[in-house]
C-alpha cells in the first residue's frame, strides 16, 4: 500500500514538474529542437535540473540494501548500444519533433481534455502495440495477447 501511494505521489510530482518546466507545451519542445530558428534552450535547463538531482540521488539510493517498500531494486541491465536502440531512438525522436510530445507530457496533458492529446496518446499506444506484435508475434512466449509474463527486465 505504501508502495502504491509512493508511486502515486511520484507520478504527481513528476507531472507538476513537467507542467511548471514548460514541457507540457509542445512549442517549448519544438522550440528547443529548432536549433536553426528561434532556439529556446529551456528544455536543456529541465534536463540539467532533473539530472543534477537524480545523479546524486541515484548514487545514494542504490547503496541501500533495498528500497523502502519493496524487497529489491529493478535496475536497467542492458548495456548494448545496438541497432534497435539507435533505430528506436531515431524513430522516437522523429515523432517527438513532429508532434512536440513525448510520453510523459502527453499523459499529463490528457488532463486538459484536448482532442489533440487524446489522438496522440491513442496513436502512441497503437505504436507500442505494433511494436509488440512485430517483436513478439502471436505464438511467441512474449506475444502481445499474453498477459501472464513479465515485461522485459532492464527497461529504461
Amino acid at each position: 500500500m505504501k508502495r502504491l501511494a509512493a508511486a502515486f505521489v511520484s507520478g504527481c510530482v513528476f507531472a507538476l514538474g513537467l507542467g511548471i518546466s514548460g514541457m507540457t507545451q509542445p512549442s517549448k519542445v519544438v522550440g528547443f529542437l529548432d536549433f536553426f530558428g528561434h532556439w529556446d534552450p529551456s528544455l536543456a535547463l529541465v534536463m540539467i535540473g532533473a539530472i543534477a538531482v537524480y545523479f546524486v540521488a541515484w548514487r545514494l539510493i542504490v547503496r541501500r540494501p533495498a528500497p523502502l517498500f519493496t524487497p529489491r531494486f529493478v535496475l536497467p541491465g542492458r548495456t548494448a548500444i545496438d541497432r534497435p536502440l539507435l533505430a528506436g531512438a531515431a524513430i522516437f525522436g522523429a515523432g517527438w519533433g513532429l508532434g512536440g510530445f513525448c510520453p510523459g507530457p502527453a499523459i499529463v496533458s490528457l488532463a486538459s481534455g484536448s482532442g489533440t492529446v487524446i489522438l496522440f496518446v491513442l496513436a502512441m499506444v497503437t505504436g507500442m502495440y505494433l511494436h509488440s506484435l512485430i517483436a513478439h508475434p502471436i505464438g511467441h512466449p512474449r506475444a502481445a495477447l499474453r498477459v501472464d509474463l513479465a515485461v522485459p527486465a532492464g527497461d529504461s
Binding site: K2, R3, A6, A7, V9, S10, G11, C12, V13, F14, L16, G17, L18, G19, I20, S21, G22, M23, L45, V46, M47, I48, G49, A50, I51, A52, V53, Y54, A57, W58, I61, V62, R64, A66, P67, L68, F69, T70, R72, F73, V74
Partner: peptide
C-alpha cells in the same frame, strides 16, 4: 520543474526500486 522531475524520479527509486 526539472528539479521536481529529478526529485519525483528519485522518490520512485527510493520507495519502489
Amino acid at each position: 520543474g526539472g528539479l521536481m522531475i529529478g526529485l519525483a524520479a528519485a522518490g520512485l527509486l527510493l520507495s519502489t526500486g
